[in-house]
Design a protein around this nucleic acid. Structure first.
Length: 428
RNA sequence: GUGAGCGUGGCUCAGUUGGUUAGAGCGCUGGGUUGUGGUCCCGGAGGUCGUGGGUUCGAGUCCCACCGUUCACCCCA
């Protein structure tokens, strides 16, 4: 039996890696434009960090984390999300003194022990974005605008849904009202809903059962229970989005899976991901920093799922990378191989993308290899050429070929060859 | 954790009501006279039919278990 990869852990093969790079590159560009800086944080943290931030009673902490004792018997876990680590780093390095606000993002793998399905893996990758230091509703709008800009840049057909979850003041009251409402309907809704009404009542509202949804048509809405300041905040968030011309819809039943969210929450929704419909999601987490032992500073952020983006991004819209001259070097005989070997290195030094075969294949085989490499030029170095101190340069597209002189100075002759093929590459 | 579908060469799949040496396409590889690709033609390598039991004279084809995988529930990016 050969050793296989773990369930839910996937290799990203070379033929799809360009998609990942394209997504990351455009994201980085946009994030920087909005004033965010990259931070790299560890994958492993003390278990306590996630228990305190995400919430002890959440599914993530209760049954989905990769948690184990390290060799010194400290309980560590592989991060299931990015925000906690970034905030930990922010606090640990006293970043609050650097300037009044910090805008950070990080890109990397996250781990959750779940059953894999479409758009969901055990190791998955997120781009996680945090704007720390301001509680202004316009920052919420700005962060959403950034997420939206990324979706546009990737030509994704997604919609933005927003909601407010209230704060420590008003959410408990809403919860109470909701639980009262639910208690009266215990026998009319599904078993899952009854379970949820105890563990996470807000969750009940987005049950997928149509029957349950019918029961909930006049369930209390969080938006009717917001306290004055939360209501103002939400209004200003909406105003901010409108100022930027960003289309959104309010979904008062949207819930987040992590305990730390307060006030604004939002999701970027698509219909093209099977059961998973969120490509990205986030919200405000005032109070979380203090909870983690830092100063009481507010924050907003979001995460987007790389795998989900990769599933959605249309390969066709990615313009082919500007290709550098692509050369395949064909040699015949050992002497030519030696000469070609150093010629290849010299051309690479010039910036050309060059390959050659080392296994002494026939001319025909080497030509076939050149074709497979997508080489636009072939340099043929046979015994005749070697004898005359020259090489054959063949254009694989037009079929034309010409001889080029090889001087004794490898440097100048590589420059010469490179100039020839570079100019023609640009022209064609 | 629950449910359903699927598991045949590197990839995508055929394999009739169980019956002699398991097939195709793509890919890989060699060749079609002496040193030229992409098309075409010919040849070659590559499979203990997921694993282990069972039924049968005989199983890729039926039954059971396990494993893997996919999708969905739960939950979530």
């Amino acid at each position: 039996m050969t050793v296989k990869g773990l369930k839910g852990f996937k290799d990203v093969l070379p033929n799809e890696v360009h998609l990942w790079q394209h997504i990351e590159n455009t994201a980085r560009k946009i994030f920087h434009r909005f004033g965010f800086s990259e931070i790299k944080v560890p994958i492993l943290e003390k278990t306590e960090l996630f228990a305190r931030s995400i919430g002890e009673a959440t599914d993530i902490v209760e049954k989905e984390m990769y948690t184990f004792p390290d060799r010194n018997d400290i309980s560590v876990t592989m991060r299931p999300e990015g925000t906690a680590s970034v905030l930990r780093a922010y606090i640990e390095h006293g970043m609050h003194v650097l300037q009044s606000g910090q805008r950070l993002y990080t890109i990397g793998p996250m781990f959750r022990y779940e059953r894999p399905q479409k758009g969901r893996l055990r190791q998955f990758h997120q781009m996680s974005v945090e704007a720390i230091g301001s509680g202004h509703p316009r920052v919420d709008a700005e962060v959403m605008a950034m997420a939206w800009t990324l979706m546009e840049a990737l030509s994704l057909n997604v919609s933005l849904e927003i909601n407010s979850l209230g704060c420590r003041e008003c959410r408990p009251e809403f919860k109470k009202a909701l639980v009262e409402f639910l208690d009266k309907r215990q026998d009319k809704v599904c078993a899952d809903c009854n379970r949820r009404s105890k563990t996470n009542p807000l969750r009940v509202l987005d049950c997928k059962s149509e029957n349950c949804q019918q029961q909930y048509v006049d369930a209390p809405s969080i938006l009717d229970h917001l306290c004055g300041s939360c209501e103002d905040h939400f209004l200003e968030v909406r105003e901010g989005l409108e100022l930027l011309g960003i289309h959104y819809s309010v979904n008062s039943r949207m819930v987040r899976g992590l305990d730390y969210y307060t006030r604004t929450t939002f999701e970027l929704i698509t219909n093209d991901l099977g059961a998973q419909n969120a490509v990205g999601a986030g919200g405000r987490y005032d109070g979380l920093l203090e909870q983690l032992g830092g100063q009481d500073k507010p924050g907003v952020g979001f995460a987007v799922g790389m795998e989900r983006l990769v599933l959605l991004v249309n390969e066709d819209i990615i313009k082919a990378e500007k290709r550098k001259p692509d050369v395949f070097l064909i040699t015949l005989g050992e002497d030519a191989a030696r000469k070609g070997f150093s010629l290849m290195h010299g051309l690479r030094g010039q910036g050309a993308k060059v390959s050659m075969d080392h296994d002494g294949r026939s001319m025909k085989s080497q030509m076939k290899l050149a074709d497979k490499h997508g080489a636009r030029y072939v340099i043929i170095l046979g015994e005749d050429e070697l004898a005359n101190n020259e090489a054959l340069l063949k254009n694989m597209v037009s079929g034309e070929q010409e001889t080029v002189a090889l001087s004794d100075d490898m440097g100048t002759c590589c420059t010469g060859i490179y100039e020839r093929i570079r100019v023609r590459t640009i022209n064609t």
